[in-house]
Simulated scan of single mutants.
Amino acid sequence: MGIEIEKKFTVKEFPLDLDTYPCHIIEQGYLNTSPAVRVRREDDHYYMTYKGSAPAEEGGIGKVEYNMPLDAESYAHLVKKCDGNLIKKTRYLLPLNEDAFDSEYLLKNPQFKSALGNGDIKIELDVFKSPFDGRQLAEVEFPSEEAAKAYHPASWFNEDVTGDYHYSNSYMSTEEL
């Protein structure tokens, strides 16, 4: 079990060199949306995920997340049982923007500065395929809520939609198109 602490943003423009970054091809469906129980194929890896509310202080952005590995056969069986829209997207892994944190914050958090230097924290840019062509969302996962609050969004981000369920993949799976 882990706690997922992430911020989510709409995108006003793509980075110019997007095709130079590593990416994953993702397909996922939802067996349940509250709590979220999904099955996912990410490239040639398969797993089931449970996401629920975190036992964090009121107003926190963390969520409990369990990932359980599946094989291709199990995924193929379970994805047929999913309700609603199947989500298909390309996820690009981009380095965190250079102005993501104030230098004072980094001085007070040397272990975090090290994680940044190693590229452990990335921007995940999701570019959705049919039936959601044209949608793009960027997410950044953080090691703590303090780091999430201190983060300065990249210049190519638009609106901070963290916590707005309309931008969750589970909600998208239920949208009538």
Rank of each mutant, 00 (worst) to 15 (best):
T162C: 14
A148Y: 07
A72N: 02
H24G: 05
K89P: 04
P143C: 10
K81Q: 13
R91W: 13
M172I: 01
L78W: 09
E141Q: 12
T20E: 11
E58V: 15
Y105L: 01
D133N: 10
D17M: 13
L96C: 09
K108Q: 13
N118E: 08
E145F: 11
K129S: 12
T162G: 04
Y75V: 02
N109Q: 03
K122A: 12
S168A: 08
F142P: 01
M48I: 15
P153I: 05
K88T: 08
Q111T: 14
T20V: 08
V161Y: 13
D44M: 09
E4Y: 03
E176L: 13
I123H: 09
Y92A: 04
A150S: 14
H24K: 12
S170T: 13
P110K: 11
S114M: 14
K89F: 11
E175H: 08
S103L: 10
L94H: 06
E175Y: 14
D160A: 10
C23N: 13
E98L: 10
G59H: 11
Y167E: 00
I5T: 04
V11W: 13
E73S: 03
A154E: 06
Y30M: 02
E139S: 09
L125N: 00
N32F: 14
G2I: 04
Y167K: 12
F132I: 11
S34M: 14
D44E: 09
N32W: 12
R135S: 10
Y46R: 01
Y105S: 04
P22K: 15
G2M: 05
M48N: 10
L70M: 07
Y21I: 03
P153S: 02
E42A: 06
Y105E: 00
L125C: 05
I3V: 15
K63D: 00
A76S: 11
G163S: 03
V37P: 07
A100R: 10
K89C: 11
E141Y: 04
E124W: 09
A148V: 03
E176P: 00
D126I: 07
D126K: 12
T174A: 07
Y171M: 10
Y30A: 00
A54P: 04
D17A: 13
T20S: 11
P110Y: 15
P55N: 15
Y46I: 06
N118M: 06
Y151S: 04
D43W: 13
V64D: 10
N109D: 10
F142C: 01
P143H: 09
A138C: 06
L86K: 03
Q136Y: 05
K113E: 07
